[in-house]
């Protein structure tokens, strides 16, 4: 079975995700970019597992782990982002701590 397809897919996902993660000023959009990278990793793992056919190989169990961690991470991330939004009034990732605290002091 040729793995070319999955690999290309993974590369596209990772590339897009990396671009998204690095270029977005908005924290939520950045998170989405990260999820795309994770998606690429998952594609690699699953396709490898499928190719090897070994029931207990890393490829089968790992995606589950990764998805779980990612979920926990996103939960925490959203909590922090929410808190930041509440305290600073923006989730702009280009604000430095000085401008951020000015925002906060100027805000309500």
């Amino acid at each position: 079975m040729s793995l070319l397809g999955p690999y290309v897919l993974a590369a596209v996902l990772v590339g897009t995700g990396l671009y998204g993660a690095l270029a977005r000023r908005n924290a939520v959009l950045m998170l989405i970019g990260v999820e795309l990278i994770l998606g690429g990793a998952l594609v690699l793992l699953v396709s490898t597992a499928a190719a090897s056919g070994d029931q207990w190989s890393g490829g089968t169990v790992l995606p589950l782990f990764i998805i779980t961690i990612a979920a926990a991470e996103v939960a925490l991330a959203l909590a922090v982002i929410l808190a930041a939004f509440r305290l600073r009034g923006s989730i702009d990732l280009t604000a430095s701590d000085r401008t951020a605290s000015e925002h906060a002091e100027a805000g309500p």
Binding site: E35, L38, L44, L62
Partner: peptide
């Protein structure tokens, strides 16, 4: 981002 990279690396 680092976690994503770790996952990618492991993959």
């Amino acid at each position: 981002l680092s976690f994503a990279l770790l996952a990618l690396g492991v993959a």
